[in-house]
Simulated assay, not measured.
Amino acid sequence: MKYYLSSVTAACLVAGGAHAGALDRTGQPVDVLFEQGRYLEFSLGYLSPDITGENINPRLGPVGAQSGDIGVSNFSYGAAYKADLNNAWSYAVIIDEPFKAEVDYPTNPFYFGSNSSAEFNSTAVTALLQYNFDGGFSVYGGLRAQQTDAKAAIAFAGNYEVEADPDWGIGYVAGVAYERPEIALRVSLTYNSEVEHENDVTEEVNTRAGRRSFESTAEFETPESINLAFQTGIAADTLLFGSVRWVDWSDFDLSPRVYSSPLVAGQPLLSYEDDVITYTVGLGRKLTDTWSIAGSLSYEENTGNLFTNLGPADGQTSIGLAAIYTQGKIKVTTGVRYAWIGDTTTAVQGVPAAEFDDNNALAVGVKIGYYF
């Protein structure tokens, strides 16, 4: 029974966040801890966003000028391994890309953001140790090593370019769970700490004295978060599951020294005004000993705040569908998720610049697991 529950709960997460708050990509799950015995999995996801906007500020160019599709399709990967040391102790190692985003403005001489682009990447390795008490309770925790890098080109800001070299930072994870397999119940609460980074940065920009290059260090933190997840049987072979994820995005601020100065942009390269809470609820159904299916619905509030032109996405509603095939020691999970991205207003130096409305994203993913 526990084997089936872990499969269905993870199913609708295989496609990652077709779109999730800010740079959030995976939701930093720890589901692998609850697999039975010794288990290894690999996952691959593909995200295809469709994001377009139009200029609303006459000072920046013709009102109504179109941005074109700035969304960039990309792949993400993940892997995890879990094993039991004895009846009480278990451990897991998780590799994922927790924060990732990319935008690319196509050429349009009438749109102010034309030929601008940005990319943010991360890779994390998380090592967890779990202790299982009698009575269904368990506690777990560990360390997370995370690498980040970024680059951007802002044509309308003096042909500004920046590249942040890869940097590793260390954070931690702590959590508690309660399980009652006989009624298919599990509740888990997981805290992910912030991870501090100090990336060496090279900035280039056109000045009155010609094109200049500057080197500095960009200090920022990927945000802390809390995941509350649950699942429970509601009928024979039928599971209700859901989660609430809070992420402290209001403290995220990526401000390279030259770009954020009044001489260039006078604002962060990427930042967010509010935290993001993602709500998810779903149903799983075991059809046969081989096949299971699941569906989920997720929601993030539209805040109505102004966003930077490198992150024009304010809230979302998404649906996910998944199928799980189990045969012997092998489990294959496939998922698809479609998101309606909230209408967003972007700003230049605090002044509304563009409207991004009626946008969407599609994600598909596959996860292959093996029980030893």
Rank of each mutant, 00 (worst) to 15 (best):
P181Q: 13
P181E: 14
P181T: 12
E182F: 03
I183T: 11
A184T: 05
A184L: 07
L185A: 06
R186S: 11
V187Q: 04
V187R: 03
V187A: 13
S188M: 15
S188F: 13
L189I: 08
L189W: 01
T190E: 05
T190W: 10
T190F: 06
T190M: 08
Y191A: 06
Y191D: 03
Y191I: 11
S193K: 07
E194P: 05
V195K: 00
E196S: 14
E196M: 00
E196V: 00
E198Q: 11
D200H: 13
V201A: 08
V201C: 08
V201S: 09
T202M: 03
T202W: 00
E203P: 06
E204M: 10
V205F: 05
V205M: 02
V205N: 02
T207L: 06
R208Q: 10
R208M: 05
A209V: 01
A209I: 00
A209G: 05
G210T: 05
R211S: 04
R211H: 00
R211T: 05
S213L: 13
S213R: 14
F214V: 11
F214E: 09
F214D: 06
F214H: 12
F214K: 11
F214P: 09
F214M: 12
S216P: 05
A218Y: 00
E219A: 09
F220M: 01
E221D: 15
E221H: 09
E221Y: 06
E221M: 05
T222K: 02
T222R: 07
T222C: 01
P223Q: 06
P223E: 07
P223K: 04
E224D: 14
S225M: 04
I226Q: 01
N227V: 07
N227P: 03
N227Q: 08
N227H: 06
L228V: 14
L228Y: 03
L228H: 12
L228T: 13
A229G: 06
A229N: 07
F230V: 09
Q231K: 12
T232H: 08
T232A: 15
T232I: 13
G233N: 09
G233M: 10
I234L: 13
I234V: 15
A235P: 06
A236G: 11
A236L: 10
A236Q: 14
